[in-house]
Design a protein around this nucleic acid. Structure first.
Lengths: 348, 348
DNA sequence: CACCCGAGAGAAAACGATTACCCAGCCGAC
DNA sequence: GTCGGCTGGGTAATCGTTTTCTCTCGGGTG
């Protein structure tokens, strides 16, 4: 695997590697004749600079590492897309890693980023501060996603608690009393906050059976749906901690012949693209996920440029009313299939 | 941004950097006393090796570049997920780049991979061989996705033509005669092959209006759905070149009050997770997209290990029968929400 | 006692770039 | 004629590692 290096170009053009570098980067003074000779040779040899070597000496890699819990489902892919768009706009690349809920893997992923990236986007809802702090290479600019800022690290955060409260109040506002919850996994900070919001906003106390644990997957939502439907008295609404579980839940209720929202209303969280296509379309709390990813990357980029600036940002999810919640409002005029704004809430 | 290097560890432990390196990599002989002293110091200083420097001298980065047209939609995210899983299993990382249908961006993405990655996964259905060949750094192991192999590059490929023929025949087999097509963008090789399969398999000739161009997006499927529904005579079936456009089309038909599959049957392509959740659930050609990504990565990995081995692989999509096609078969017994195999086809 | 061998550890050469520094011309000014 | 400034371009240090030599020191052997 013989690849052509700057030395080859220099030898071939009969100059020093310094001149080649100067010409190719357009810095320093080089005579016109030499310049064109070098360019010609580089072209002829199809020379492409070795980015690894380049970033070693320049101490910047033009790459951002992004560590996600998983790549499953639209939430992460939208997040990645948003980050990628922002990265491209800045000439940055994205090095992706997944931790799969495993602290060891997360730590390994973080370690292996050293010397490969200029900064790190870290989403690890299952890790606590101490663990993260212990494994983060110092001096590596980092932005935490969906975690509180700490220790000089910026963060972008979704207001899970507020979102959950909003959704539960909305369901209650439509006359639902026995609102059940499909929670995310234990130890996941988003799941915990959403559960807390649910518990605080629930119109009447219910026993423990009305909260079922899932793991944010469709399958777990399906199972939870079956379990909740079997309760007596049956809940008249279910708030799922994310849209994927809501999707699974709809499947379960559909199979059992339970009408949504007639018998059971349903609310989700995230507003992934799928939510629009469920039947009935899913009422959910919108995080503009791609935008969230973009925000995180932009904050990181500015932290890299201005290392002093440590600032956090918070995203408040918005209620998107579709049909699954049995909302009794007028349907907004639908112009072009897009959502339209109505009284600070979206009605689709 | 002072980070700790191997030199710091060496100085602190009062040994040479060579010994530190030997201990940390577990190669060569080092006395027990020195070994533990070095390990202690490295631990204390929280030393993490600089992967960039490491890969420069070792001539391997443990990173695979993956260039995709876009990150929009479940197709690409599933692909990425499959590749990531296979990569993690091999201790490899993924450097993601998107070309957005723009040849210049694609070329830039490919160039910037030099010296960052050990191999390249390239999906660029909008680029021709010559262009790709001209911009691929020589000596960089590459696997092409959804493109024919050439010039010593391996490829993994989906049999678009066969898939399209299968779908159209299936629709025809259910008694549909006027089968329209929502095609992908001009110049996209997958779109072209699917269109060709459609044209060859269509039970009766139709005029040009029955083929509408989309761009693989939901919005374009929506627009195409409106256009096709306005035709006279109206088609009794629509084959969309991918599931996203089928989803948009369902939306359009739904809005117009046209029954699916009653008045118009619908078929898609890809079987992204969304297909299951559409109403009616979408009959489509299944590519196990994540598995496809995994295959591609594994082929690349073996090409890297055995540079001689250039082999291509082909994936034949399978018909997944759901309700959108109006299939008159018995519904398969549904055991656990999963698809079940029936006569070589899936019925869900 | 001379010799050889192996173990342990340091010095230094890579890897492929960027860039600070220096030097050789050349030209105009005094 | 000398000097100074500017231009063009080469030399070499550097980035943080790995790895090949090489050297030293002990101990076993003849």
């Amino acid at each position: 695997m013989k690849t052509v290096t700057i030395k080859d170009v220099a030898r071939e053009a009969d100059v020093s590697i310094a001149s080649v570098s100067r010409v190719l980067n357009g810095v320093g003074r080089v005579g016109e004749a030499t310049r064109t000779r070098i360019l010609k040779t580089a072209e002829r040899l199809r020379y492409v600079p070795h980015e690894g070597a380049r970033s070693l000496i320049m101490r910047r890699t033009a790459t951002i590492g992004i560590v996600l819990p998983d790549l499953h489902g639209e939430f992460f892919s939208e997040l990645l897309r948003g980050a990628d768009n922002a990265a491209r706009a800045r000439g940055l690349h994205l090095l992706v890693s997944t931790s799969h809920g495993n602290p060891e893997e997360a730590a390994a992923a973080i370690r292996s980023m050293r010397g490969r990236v200029d900064g790190l986007l870290l989403m690890s809802p299952h890790l606590d501060h101490a663990f993260v702090a212990r494994h983060l290479p110092e001096g590596l600019p980092t932005v935490l996603m969906n975690a509180a800022a700490f220790d000089g690290k910026s963060a972008v955060d979704v207001e899970d608690y507020v979102g959950a409260v909003t959704m539960v109040r909305h369901l209650a506002g439509n006359g639902r009393r026995r609102i059940a919850h499909i929670a995310g996994p234990v130890g996941n900070s988003d799941a915990t906050e959403r559960l807390r919001g649910y518990l605080d906003a629930r119109p009447e106390p219910l026993d423990d059976g009305y909260v079922v644990r899932g793991d944010f997957s469709v399958a777990s939502g399906y199972a939870a749906g079956l379990a909740l439907a079997a309760l007596d008295p049956r809940p008249d609404a279910i708030f799922a901690a994310n849209d994927m579980m809501a999707a699974g839940c709809i499947d379960a209720l559909d199979e059992l012949g339970i009408a949504v929202p007639g018998e059971i209303a349903l609310g989700g969280f995230d507003d992934v693209p799928l939510a629009h296509f469920l039947r009935p379309p899913l009422t959910t709390m919108r995080i503009n996920v791609a935008d969230f990813g973009r925000k995180a990357l932009e904050r990181l980029a500015s932290t890299i440029e201005q290392p002093t600036e440590v600032e956090s940002e918070t995203v408040v999810p918005e209620l998107v009313i579709r049909r699954s919640c049995g909302h009794r409002g007028r349907k907004a005029p639908k112009s072009n299939g897009e959502d339209s704004l109505k009284q600070g809430r979206y009605v689709e």
